Simulated assay, not measured.
Amino acid sequence: MASIFTKIINREIPAHIVAEDDNYIAFLDIMPLVKGHVLVVPKQEVDYIFDLDPEVLSGLTVFSQKVAKAIDKTIKCTRVGVAVIGLEVPHVHVHLVPLRTMDDINFTRPKLKLSNEELAEIAETIKGGF
């Protein structure tokens, strides 16, 4: 069965996409830790990051860097944090989280509940950073 991220890649369910190429896609987390929290996903459906082929893993890092730089340009933050947890969805994904404090990347705290309009506005803002 396809993961929720594969369904986003295949446009079977909507997402606020901020960047995409032939191998990777980046979109807003719909339950973000902070505004501007982005997920970066390889289009190849693999559950565990260290099971990716070396070329795909390195490409994921380079693509994530481009997205992080766009976030850093457009979202007020001290820097962009990165985390790979890998327990929530069985499809590799990198969390890029705009940080002002260490607590901004605390996955145990309550997530934000933003409207579709707020998410769309944030996505357009980040797209402007490329």
Score class of each variant (00 low, 15 high):
residue 113 K to G: 05
residue 94 V to S: 12
residue 117 E to H: 11
residue 99 L to Q: 07
residue 51 D to P: 11
residue 118 E to Q: 05
residue 35 K to E: 12
residue 79 R to F: 15
residue 107 F to L: 03
residue 103 D to T: 01
residue 93 H to D: 09
residue 90 P to R: 15
residue 68 A to H: 07
residue 119 L to Y: 08
residue 26 A to H: 10
residue 56 V to H: 02
residue 46 V to F: 13
residue 2 A to C: 15
residue 130 F to R: 03
residue 29 D to C: 12
residue 24 Y to K: 03
residue 20 E to G: 00
residue 12 E to T: 00
residue 127 K to E: 10
residue 68 A to P: 09
residue 86 G to P: 14
residue 23 N to S: 12
residue 6 T to G: 04
residue 112 L to K: 05
residue 15 A to Y: 15
residue 31 M to V: 10
residue 88 E to G: 13
residue 16 H to E: 03
residue 8 I to N: 05
residue 87 L to T: 07
residue 35 K to N: 06
residue 77 C to S: 10
residue 120 A to G: 10
residue 114 L to F: 10
residue 129 G to A: 06
residue 44 Q to L: 08
residue 14 P to Y: 01
residue 58 S to P: 06
residue 28 L to T: 11
residue 51 D to K: 04
residue 48 Y to M: 13
residue 2 A to S: 15
residue 4 I to T: 03
residue 122 I to T: 02
residue 38 V to C: 08
residue 56 V to S: 00
residue 109 R to Y: 09
residue 37 H to S: 08
residue 82 V to G: 04
residue 75 I to E: 12
residue 94 V to I: 15
residue 59 G to W: 02
residue 103 D to Q: 08
residue 37 H to T: 07
residue 99 L to F: 08
residue 128 G to C: 08
residue 57 L to W: 06
residue 96 L to S: 05
residue 63 F to E: 06
residue 86 G to Y: 12
residue 101 T to D: 14
residue 43 K to M: 04
residue 38 V to W: 08
residue 65 Q to N: 02
residue 39 L to F: 10
residue 42 P to V: 06
residue 31 M to L: 14
residue 96 L to G: 04
residue 70 A to R: 07
residue 121 E to F: 03
residue 66 K to A: 05
residue 113 K to D: 10
residue 29 D to P: 13
residue 82 V to P: 13
residue 8 I to V: 06
residue 39 L to A: 04
residue 24 Y to S: 00
residue 73 K to D: 13
residue 67 V to S: 04
residue 47 D to K: 09
residue 12 E to Q: 06
residue 112 L to N: 11
residue 27 F to K: 11
residue 88 E to A: 13
residue 53 D to A: 13
residue 44 Q to E: 08
residue 59 G to D: 00
residue 12 E to H: 02
residue 93 H to F: 13
residue 106 N to R: 02
residue 98 P to N: 06
residue 69 K to A: 09
residue 102 M to Y: 05
residue 49 I to C: 09
residue 11 R to E: 02
residue 13 I to Q: 09
residue 21 D to R: 06
residue 100 R to N: 15
residue 76 K to H: 11
residue 96 L to T: 01
residue 60 L to Q: 00
residue 55 E to M: 11
residue 27 F to G: 02
residue 29 D to E: 12
residue 22 D to F: 02
residue 124 E to Y: 02
residue 66 K to F: 01
residue 88 E to R: 12
residue 77 C to K: 04
residue 128 G to W: 14
residue 90 P to Q: 15
residue 17 I to Y: 09
residue 115 S to H: 10
residue 97 V to H: 05
residue 22 D to R: 01
residue 7 K to G: 07
residue 65 Q to G: 04
residue 10 N to I: 01
residue 46 V to N: 07
residue 60 L to K: 00
